[in-house]
């Protein structure tokens, strides 16, 4: 039986002003429920690929289809709608709103998705071991804790795809393990996970590693 593709990237290029070619004819398909690690040196185009997959950026050419939707042709607001329905984003720098508590940061994603549900938000925080710190501001949390809040925010709307950009890049070993545990659980739950990372350990945990260099996929 043919797999159902979560992501189909066909000959995608991204050229920034000044003829900076971030992606150069990239093609890749990712099946639903697959855990992919995208690795490569800095400037190889990993984050650009991720931004095209979440609709924050548009390819200059090629086809970028996620969950059956070609993101290349979406207007910014349609891309935002697509993102809140299908994608959960995890950032290296967490990007929590500094004046909102942990639970409010999670509820913010609910607010833009549909409606806020404090109990559900608390449940998601509990699933990442952060229920005790739900009412703390980001500045009162450690890096690992902030990352877990960031993951909770990505999960609260139950997206099919998790896109993570260096999720363990700013974490110590103990916190890295906790994050990996969460990703394992999400993988078991059938989520499609695409992780951009420099971390070999993180890469080894993934089902497939895609290597990139100079805007091209060199392996995987």
């Amino acid at each position: 039986m043919a797999p159902s593709w979560a992501v189909i990237i066909e000959n995608v290029s991204k050229v920034y002003p000044g003829e900076v070619r971030a992606l150069d004819g990239v093609s890749i398909t990712i099946a639903g429920g697959e855990w992919i690690a995208v690795m490569g040196p800095s400037g190889s185009g990993k984050t650009t690929l991720l931004n095209i997959l979440d609709g924050l950026d548009k390819p200059t050419s090629g086809r970028a289809e996620v969950q059956g939707v070609n993101l290349a042709h979406l207007m910014p607001d349609d891309a935002a709608t697509f993102r809140r329905e299908h994608i959960g984003l995890v950032f290296q720098q967490f990007h929590l709103i500094p004046y909102l508590t942990a639970i409010e940061n999670v509820m913010l994603a609910q607010y833009y998705h549909s409606m806020v549900d404090r109990r559900q938000a608390l449940g998601v925080l509990e699933s990442v071991g952060m229920e005790a710190r739900a009412h703390h501001l980001p500045a009162q949390l450690s890096g690992g804790e902030q990352q877990r809040v960031c993951i909770a925010r990505a999960l609260v709307n139950e997206p099919e795809i998790i896109l993570a950009d260096e999720p363990t890049g700013n974490l110590d070993e103990a916190n890295e393990e906790k994050v990996l545990e969460i990703f394992h659980r999400l993988h078991k739950e059938g989520k499609t996970i695409i992780v951009v990372t420099h971390d070999r350990e993180m890469g080894q945990q993934a089902q497939r590693v895609v290597m990139m260099q100079h805007g091209r996929i060199t392996c995987g």
Binding site: D54, L56, P76, D77, A80, T81, R83, R84, E85, L89, H95, I97, P98, L108, A109, Y112, H113, R153
Partner: peptide, 16 residues
């Protein structure tokens, strides 16, 4: 800038 970009990333439309 980052905060407003995050609102877009979380699915906030231009109008919201």
């Amino acid at each position: 800038r980052k905060e407003l970009a995050l609102l877009h990333a979380l699915g906030g439309t231009r109008r919201s």
